[in-house]
């Protein structure tokens, strides 16, 4: 197999904190340099994205005389559906995706709040966010923050106390807490928009 090992940089006293993916049970210590098809197929859900992104370009770096490696569409689909989502993998991907979305939102949020310099502009800015679509997005935002926070605390706790053998039940606890908090916090947000109008 053609892959390069990423060597952990931190001493063991920090847990396995050097590579977030590791601790989540997702084998990311294979960084594919020139992956063969079989190697590509060896990894998890994360590779689905890579697949979709690179499907059409797979032969771009083909050497002269090398055979065509683009899989048939059926092979492609069956591979994509053959991945199993393990909780560690899901936790890692969700933590990363929520973290990155929150960074993007934070930047937009800070730039938007410049309207606080002028009361009229601020009311207009807030009105822009007050429509059903954005109320739904607000609840999604709460969900992202809740998941990221609970999962972050789980990572923290695991680094300190449990290491990974308790990972699965803890992850389910994170999911349950996220759902509970999102529903409890989300209801007051969506009530005036989606529920009050339905009441007689």
């Amino acid at each position: 197999m053609s892959y390069r090992k990423v060597t952990p940089v931190l001493p063991p006293i920090y847990g396995d904190a050097c590579s977030s993916a590791w601790r989540h049970g997702f084998v990311m210590d294979r960084v594919f340099t020139s992956a063969s098809l079989r190697d590509r197929y060896a990894m998890g859900i994360w590779m689905v994205f890579i697949h979709v992104l690179t499907y059409r370009g797979m032969n771009q770096n083909k050497l002269p005389g090398q055979s065509d490696t683009t899989p048939s569409f059926r092979t492609f689909l069956s591979t994509v559906f053959s991945y199993r989502v393990r909780s560690g993998m899901a936790a890692w991907i969700l933590h990363r995706v929520t973290g990155l979305s929150l960074v993007l939102y934070l930047a937009i949020h800070i730039m938007g709040l410049r309207s606080l310099g002028n009361p009229l502009a601020f009311e207009a800015y807030i009105t822009g966010y007050r429509n059903p679509l954005f109320k739904f997005a607000e609840v999604m935002l709460l969900g992202s923050v809740a998941f990221h926070a609970f999962n972050g605390l789980r990572i923290f706790a695991q680094d300190m106390y449990f290491r990974s053998e308790r990972q699965k039940p803890l992850f389910y606890a994170v999911l349950a807490l996220t759902i509970i908090v999102t529903i409890i916090g989300g209801l007051p947000i969506i009530f005036p928009y989606f529920i009050t109008p339905l009441l007689p």
């Binding site: 606080l116 009361p119 009229l120 601020f122 009311e123 207009a124 807030i126 009105t127 007050r130 007051p188 009530f191 005036p192 928009y193 009050t196």
Partner: peptide, 22 residues
């Protein structure tokens, strides 16, 4: 701005972020 819909009244039961409260 209100006539143009750039600033909207609150719906019944809605709580709104507003400059004076901030």
């Amino acid at each position: 701005a209100i006539a143009d819909g750039k600033i909207k009244e609150a719906l019944p039961g809605e709580h709104v972020i507003t400059y004076s409260k901030v």
